[in-house]
C-alpha cells in the first residue's frame, strides 16, 4: 500500500465507510456512485454496521507480493447486518475454529506487518 492510495482510501478502510442511495435506501460497500438497484446517481457516504456473519471463508497459503510473510491468512466472505457482503481478513482466531455462520465484528487493524500505519477493516469473532 502506498501513501497516496491510503490517503485516498484510508477513511474507507478504517471506518468501512460505504454508501447509501437516498432514493431507494440500498446500501453499498465498496461504495458506488450509481445505485445498482434503482439507477439513482446521487448516493451518499454511509457507515456500515460492524456486526456480521461469516458466509464462507478460506485460509490462503499463497499470498500476493504485497502480503509476503502474512500467510497463512484467513479471508472471509462476511454478510453484514444490513445485508451488504464484504471480503476481509478474519483475525484473532485459529483457522481450525472458523465456521460458516459464525458471528464476527469489524475492527480496524494494521493492513500488514510492514504497513503498520495503514489501518484496514478486518473481522474478529464476536463477543
Amino acid at each position: 500500500m502506498d501513501g497516496v492510495r491510503y490517503g485516498r482510501l484510508g477513511e474507507r478502510y478504517r471506518e468501512m465507510l460505504g454508501s447509501r442511495c437516498p432514493s431507494c435506501g440500498a446500501e453499498y460497500f465498496p461504495p458506488v456512485r450509481v445505485c445498482r438497484r434503482c439507477g439513482g446517481r446521487g448516493t451518499k457516504d454511509h457507515p456500515m454496521p460492524r456486526e456480521g456473519r461469516l458466509v464462507s471463508f478460506t485460509v490462503l497459503n499463497v499470498a500476493s507480493a504485497e502480503f509476503q510473510g502474512e500467510a497463512p491468512m484467513a479471508i472471509g466472505l462476511i454478510e453484514l447486518e444490513n445485508g451488504v457482503k464484504v471480503m476481509a481478513q478474519v483475525v484473532d482466531v485459529p483457522p481450525s475454529s472458523l465456521r460458516e455462520g459464525m458471528k464476527v465484528t469489524m475492527v480496524a487493524r494494521p493492513l500488514t506487518k510492514a504497513d503498520g500505519a495503514f489501518l484496514c477493516y478486518k473481522f474478529v469473532p464476536a463477543g
Partner: peptide
C-alpha cells in the same frame, strides 16, 4: 477489485475458494 479485494489481502484463488466452500456446503 484492486482497492477492495487485492488490497485487503484476498487473492484470485481465494475468491474461488470461498465459492468452492459455499458450493460444497
Amino acid at each position: 477489485s484492486q482497492e477492495y479485494t487485492a488490497s485487503v489481502g484476498a487473492t484470485f484463488i481465494s475468491l474461488n475458494a470461498v465459492t468452492h466452500r459455499l458450493y460444497l456446503s
